[in-house]
């Protein structure tokens, strides 16, 4: 007997399953009703003489109203239920363990904040909300973990997020769910959910060259970003300390919240959004740095919020 039901290993799984059971109940009820009526009528009113004709019935307004309004009400219930599950899926809690994901044909690369890197395997602790911040180096991919009931496309040129909170230690399938070329079905991996203590042991046991932010800091110096983006206000570029999460005033009066996507865009296409009071003199880094280096830089900029600036 094959499994007819997937494993449930996240806080979201039970919510999706509950909706699934309700939907099955609705579907079975109406399928049985329609099929039952068809078979019953077909037998009960079968033609008995070759010349037989049916009783002429034009229609019935009350019935029409009934079978318009009742399905509409049921649909409304399903809509609200589906929407509320989706809101929960798309709103991560405030405190999440952030992990960066880069998809490329045909592998998954994961970067932990402390610097651990994994390919096609993702270690996460049980009971803690995890947010994946994802991008692609080439075509569209999609992170899908059936046991968690979460899925989101991974797009080139932008960041998308999903979050989950695993409830059960174990190893779970990770699939690429958006067709991405020849070895699409080989772009698979595993999410390994561990008890917090084991997870800590795994973190410290992995060889790292330094945290994501510190690698980003080194890159920040190597690429000479530091020349203009200085910690004091004397630089030719905006100060990055305390930038992340703030609202930035742009030339032309618009504003933008400095999130990961904004920082990424400002590195690749600096002229797209110019901070008010600064000249558009920054060169573009499009094609010069990889998605992973971008993530390191983004993480470095984020780290400047908490870190004591050395210049002060």
């Amino acid at each position: 007997m094959p499994a007819l039901f997937p494993e449930s290993a996240s806080t979201m799984a039970s919510r999706v399953d509950a909706l699934y059971f309700f939907l099955i109940a609705v579907a079975v009820f109406f399928s049985v009703l329609i099929a039952g009526l068809i078979v019953y009528f077909a037998v009960r009113y079968r033609r008995r003489t070759p010349e037989g004709v049916g009783v002429n019935i034009h229609g019935g307004l009350l019935l029409e109203i009934a079978w318009t309004v009742i399905p509409a009400l049921i649909a409304a219930v399903i809509f609200v239920w589906g929407a509320s599950v989706f809101f929960a899926m798309s709103r991560p809690p405030d405190e999440t363990l952030n992990i960066y994901v880069v998809g490329k044909q045909w592998m998954w690369k994961f970067q932990h904040l402390d610097g651990q890197r994994e390919i096609n395997e993702l270690h996460v602790p049980v009971g803690r909300a995890v947010k994946l911040i994802m991008t692609s180096e080439d075509v569209i991919h999609d992170v899908f973990v059936p046991a968690f009931r979460v899925k989101a496309d991974v797009l080139p040129g932008r960041y998308t997020n999903i979050w989950f909170q695993a409830t059960k230690p174990g190893r779970y399938h990770l699939f690429c769910a958006e067709y991405c070329g020849t070895r699409h079905s080989g772009m698979i991996g595993e999410v390994i959910v561990m008890e917090p203590s084991e997870y800590e042991a795994w973190l410290s046991g992995s060889r790292v060259e330094g945290s994501l932010a510190s690698t980003g800091e080194k890159l920040f110096q190597d690429l000479a970003c530091i020349t203009c983006h200085r910690a004091d206000t004397q630089g030719r570029g905006p100060v990055l300390q305390g930038l992340f999460g703030k609202t930035v005033q742009l030339q032309g009066g618009e504003t933008v919240v400095a999130d990961e996507a904004y920082i990424r865009e400002s590195i690749l296409r600096p002229a797209a959004k110019i901070t008010a009071g600064y000249q558009p003199i920054m060169p573009t880094f499009q094609g010069l740095i990889s998605e992973e280096q971008l993530l390191e830089l983004v993480e470095y900029v984020k780290s400047l919020n908490t870190q004591q600036s050395p210049a002060k």
Partner: peptide, 10 residues
Amino acid sequence: LFIAAVGFDV
């Protein structure tokens, strides 16, 4: 109807 419900379709 199942897949019109966003939270299920995901």
